Amino acid sequence: MQFERDEVGAAAAVEFAGYGVHERVLTMVHSGVLPPEGGGRVEALSVAELVPSLVADWRLGEPGRTDEQVRQLAERITLYERGADVTFLGVRDDNGDVIARGELYVADGVAQFEDVIVRAEHRGKGLGKQLFSAALHRSAAAGADVWFLIADDDDWPRGWYERLGYRAGPVMHVYQGMA
Rank of each mutant, 00 (worst) to 15 (best):
Q2G: 11
E4A: 08
E4L: 11
E7P: 04
V8K: 06
G9D: 03
A10M: 10
E15M: 07
Y19N: 07
G20A: 04
V33Q: 06
P35T: 13
G38A: 06
R41E: 13
L45E: 13
S46F: 04
L50C: 14
L50R: 10
S53V: 09
V55N: 09
W58P: 00
G61N: 08
E62C: 09
P63E: 04
T66H: 13
D67S: 07
E68Q: 13
Q69I: 14
Q72F: 00
L73Q: 11
E75H: 08
E75A: 09
I77F: 14
A84C: 04
D85I: 11
V91I: 03
D93K: 02
D93C: 09
G96L: 10
V98T: 10
A100E: 08
R101E: 14
V106K: 03
D108R: 10
V110Y: 12
E114H: 00
V118P: 03
R119V: 08
E121F: 03
R123P: 09
G124Y: 13
K125H: 14
G126P: 13
G126Y: 04
L127M: 02
L127T: 01
K129W: 10
F132M: 15
A135H: 05
L136C: 06
S139M: 10
A142F: 00
D152G: 12
D153Y: 12
D155G: 04
P157Q: 12
R158D: 06
W160F: 13
Y161A: 00
A179C: 03
